[in-house]
Lab assay of single mutants.
Amino acid sequence: MGFKLLSKLLVYLTASIMAIASPLAFSVDSSGEYPTVSEIPVGEVRLYQIADGVWSHIATQSFDGAVYPSNGLIVRDGDELLLIDTAWGAKNTAALLAEIEKQIGLPVTRAVSTHFHDDRVGGVDVLRAAGVATYASPSTRRLAEVEGNEIPTHSLEGLSSSGDAVRFGPVELFYPGAAHSTDNLIVYVPSASVLYGGCAIYELSRTSAGNVADADLAEWPTSIERIQQHYPEAQFVIPGHGLPGGLDLLKHTTNVVKAHTNRSVVE
């Protein structure tokens, strides 16, 4: 069995187990497998329904001669939608809004960016022009300005110390501490036991640490421990890039980060 097929099978099995364990909360999309990078042309966006009122959005972007996937989250909030992270750029984010209108038909009224990198804030200006209120932590807003990236308009308070959590509509926002970046936030959907790890969490097929220019490698494993301790009931975990899975993604990420750190020390 090929690795790609095995990865998709694991996603399907995880979703099936969740649907059985929580039949009222989960209505997993039966329309197909989780979209992969090879299936999404740059400039297009796919939506994948995880649970009743919960979707991931998947886009792709060219970077350094390669094409990478990027995940975000959409959560229903009454007759409105909360968006977590842009679709990595203005063109993708405009396509995301169009796809949401086509498939869901509810307005996106608020959006949260989970850290300051372009795959999370690139497209904020498109959201703002569409009347979406954009939010991020003060740290993310400051770092985005320093980096020359787009800056969300509103500040999220109460997320300055490791372990801080605040309720934001249908989700809980959690600051686990520094990891992929010093400002990275985690998003949890309690009604569906869905954990969105953003770039602080890796997919299972990833074996290298990737972009760690703004990471705190020493603190990252401790931050992941905080996530595990705060959300032990999480059933569906979405990484910032690639295929979702279960809580095993947290341990896998820790292993990859520690291996990278150990290699760096040896070198």
Score class of each variant (00 low, 15 high):
residue 64 D to I: 14
residue 83 L to M: 15
residue 74 I to W: 02
residue 150 E to Y: 12
residue 21 A to T: 13
residue 249 L to V: 06
residue 93 T to L: 00
residue 52 D to F: 06
residue 99 E to L: 14
residue 223 S to M: 02
residue 244 P to G: 06
residue 221 P to M: 12
residue 127 L to C: 00
residue 55 W to V: 02
residue 231 Y to A: 03
residue 106 L to N: 15
residue 151 I to V: 15
residue 245 G to F: 00
residue 53 G to E: 14
residue 108 V to H: 02
residue 202 Y to R: 11
residue 75 V to M: 05
residue 85 D to R: 00
residue 40 I to Y: 05
residue 192 A to K: 07
residue 134 T to Y: 02
residue 108 V to T: 14
residue 215 A to G: 12
residue 213 A to E: 13
residue 207 T to L: 09
residue 135 Y to I: 03
residue 106 L to W: 14
residue 149 N to T: 14
residue 88 W to N: 00
residue 164 D to C: 04
residue 101 E to N: 13
residue 131 G to H: 05
residue 104 I to A: 03
residue 196 Y to C: 03
residue 111 A to M: 14
residue 200 A to F: 03
residue 44 E to S: 13
residue 71 N to I: 03
residue 202 Y to V: 08
residue 94 A to S: 12
residue 187 V to Y: 00
residue 16 S to D: 13
residue 84 I to G: 01
residue 172 E to I: 09
residue 137 S to T: 07
residue 45 V to K: 02
residue 126 V to I: 11
residue 235 Q to A: 06
residue 68 Y to P: 01
residue 150 E to T: 08
residue 221 P to E: 09
residue 105 G to C: 12
residue 249 L to T: 03
residue 102 K to G: 13
residue 164 D to Y: 07
residue 132 V to F: 02
residue 129 A to M: 15
residue 129 A to N: 07
residue 1 M to N: 04
residue 23 P to W: 13
residue 259 A to I: 06
residue 52 D to Y: 06
residue 236 F to A: 12
residue 261 T to N: 09
residue 48 Y to I: 10
residue 65 G to C: 02
residue 89 G to Y: 04
residue 112 V to G: 03
residue 70 S to T: 14
residue 224 I to N: 09
residue 126 V to M: 09
residue 210 G to N: 15
residue 171 V to E: 02
residue 157 E to S: 11
residue 132 V to D: 02
residue 206 R to Y: 08
residue 72 G to Q: 01
residue 58 I to P: 02
residue 200 A to C: 14
residue 35 P to R: 12
residue 152 P to C: 02
residue 80 E to L: 11
residue 221 P to N: 06
residue 151 I to G: 08
residue 255 N to R: 09
residue 112 V to D: 04
residue 24 L to E: 12
residue 258 K to Y: 15
residue 146 V to E: 09
residue 45 V to Y: 00
residue 31 S to Q: 15
residue 187 V to H: 00
residue 237 V to S: 01
residue 182 T to W: 14
residue 263 R to H: 07
residue 127 L to P: 03
residue 187 V to A: 09
residue 243 L to E: 09
residue 20 I to T: 12
residue 112 V to Y: 03
residue 49 Q to F: 10
residue 13 L to Q: 06
residue 232 P to M: 12
residue 140 T to A: 04
residue 213 A to P: 10
residue 234 A to H: 00
residue 214 D to A: 11
residue 112 V to K: 03
residue 130 A to G: 11
residue 18 M to L: 05
residue 115 H to F: 00
residue 257 V to T: 08
residue 104 I to N: 02
residue 131 G to I: 04
residue 252 H to E: 04
residue 35 P to S: 14
residue 124 V to K: 02
residue 41 P to W: 07
residue 52 D to G: 10
residue 174 F to I: 04
residue 211 N to E: 14
residue 196 Y to L: 06
residue 15 A to S: 12
residue 237 V to T: 06
residue 93 T to E: 00
residue 95 A to G: 11
residue 152 P to Y: 01
residue 47 L to H: 02
residue 40 I to D: 10
residue 169 G to K: 03
residue 36 T to G: 11
residue 12 Y to S: 12
residue 110 R to F: 04
residue 221 P to A: 08
residue 52 D to S: 09
residue 16 S to M: 04
residue 126 V to S: 12
residue 93 T to H: 03
residue 154 H to T: 14
residue 122 G to W: 10
residue 60 T to Q: 15
residue 165 A to Y: 08
residue 1 M to D: 03
residue 56 S to Q: 05
residue 188 Y to T: 01
residue 100 I to M: 14
residue 162 S to M: 15
residue 62 S to G: 10
residue 256 V to L: 15
residue 32 G to A: 10
residue 79 D to W: 12
residue 226 R to C: 03
residue 39 E to T: 07
residue 63 F to T: 11
residue 77 D to T: 08
residue 240 G to Y: 00
residue 266 V to Y: 05
residue 127 L to V: 05
residue 134 T to W: 03
residue 184 N to V: 02
residue 41 P to K: 09
residue 80 E to T: 14
residue 93 T to R: 00
residue 178 A to F: 07
residue 145 E to Q: 09
residue 170 P to W: 04
residue 52 D to A: 08
residue 73 L to H: 03
residue 116 F to M: 05
residue 173 L to I: 15
residue 66 A to Y: 14
residue 224 I to R: 01
residue 79 D to I: 09
residue 262 N to Y: 10
residue 62 S to W: 07
residue 195 L to Y: 00
residue 165 A to G: 09
residue 11 V to L: 10
residue 120 R to I: 01
residue 17 I to G: 05
residue 20 I to E: 13
residue 59 A to S: 08
residue 162 S to T: 09
residue 262 N to D: 13
residue 232 P to S: 09
residue 174 F to E: 00
residue 145 E to G: 11
residue 40 I to C: 14
residue 127 L to E: 01
residue 180 H to G: 00
residue 214 D to W: 09
residue 185 L to P: 03
residue 190 P to C: 03
residue 47 L to E: 01
residue 105 G to T: 12
residue 21 A to N: 08
residue 161 S to L: 12
residue 107 P to H: 11
residue 18 M to I: 05
residue 69 P to I: 11
residue 149 N to C: 15
residue 235 Q to T: 06
residue 45 V to I: 15
residue 134 T to N: 03
residue 216 D to E: 10
residue 57 H to F: 06
residue 128 R to Y: 06
residue 143 L to H: 13
residue 100 I to Q: 02
residue 138 P to H: 08
residue 157 E to P: 13
residue 36 T to Q: 10
residue 192 A to E: 07
residue 196 Y to V: 04
residue 106 L to A: 13
residue 6 L to P: 07
residue 124 V to G: 07
residue 106 L to G: 11
residue 189 V to P: 00
residue 209 A to K: 15
residue 152 P to G: 04
residue 217 L to R: 10
residue 117 H to E: 00
residue 150 E to M: 11
residue 94 A to G: 12
residue 101 E to M: 15
residue 241 H to A: 01
residue 84 I to F: 14
residue 54 V to Q: 03
residue 98 A to H: 08
residue 9 L to W: 08
residue 85 D to Q: 00
residue 46 R to L: 08
residue 227 I to D: 01
residue 144 A to W: 03
residue 37 V to Y: 12
residue 192 A to I: 08
residue 135 Y to S: 04
residue 57 H to M: 01
residue 222 T to Y: 07
residue 198 G to V: 03
residue 183 D to F: 00
residue 84 I to Y: 00
residue 112 V to C: 03
residue 243 L to N: 11
residue 239 P to V: 06
residue 27 S to A: 07
residue 253 T to N: 01
residue 128 R to W: 06
residue 155 S to C: 13
residue 190 P to E: 06
residue 212 V to L: 12
residue 212 V to G: 11
residue 187 V to S: 04
residue 217 L to G: 06
residue 206 R to W: 07
residue 164 D to M: 06
residue 2 G to C: 05
residue 250 L to T: 04
residue 73 L to W: 01
residue 176 P to S: 04
residue 87 A to G: 10
residue 47 L to I: 09
residue 259 A to H: 06
residue 115 H to C: 00
residue 253 T to V: 00
residue 109 T to V: 13
residue 97 L to K: 00
residue 85 D to P: 00
residue 56 S to M: 15
residue 76 R to V: 08
residue 120 R to A: 14
residue 153 T to N: 05
residue 28 V to I: 12
residue 144 A to V: 14
residue 103 Q to L: 15
residue 114 T to V: 00
residue 139 S to D: 14
residue 144 A to R: 14
residue 173 L to Y: 03
residue 220 W to L: 01
residue 174 F to R: 03
residue 202 Y to Q: 06
residue 173 L to M: 07
residue 17 I to T: 05
residue 94 A to D: 13
residue 18 M to F: 05
residue 225 E to L: 15
residue 22 S to K: 09
residue 186 I to V: 13
residue 92 N to S: 13
residue 90 A to F: 14
residue 114 T to H: 00
residue 37 V to K: 12
residue 235 Q to Y: 06
residue 20 I to C: 10
residue 198 G to L: 03
residue 49 Q to M: 07
residue 10 L to A: 08
residue 234 A to M: 14
residue 167 R to T: 06
residue 157 E to D: 15
residue 1 M to A: 03
residue 114 T to K: 01
residue 124 V to C: 08
residue 219 E to R: 10
residue 194 V to H: 00
residue 154 H to G: 12
residue 216 D to L: 13
residue 137 S to Q: 09
residue 229 Q to W: 14
residue 215 A to Q: 05
residue 264 S to T: 12
residue 141 R to V: 09
residue 71 N to S: 07
residue 137 S to L: 11
residue 243 L to H: 13
residue 46 R to V: 13
residue 66 A to V: 11
residue 95 A to C: 11
residue 149 N to E: 11
residue 88 W to D: 00
residue 42 V to G: 10
residue 32 G to H: 05
residue 76 R to A: 13
residue 223 S to A: 06
residue 38 S to Y: 13
residue 202 Y to I: 06
residue 165 A to P: 08
residue 163 G to P: 04
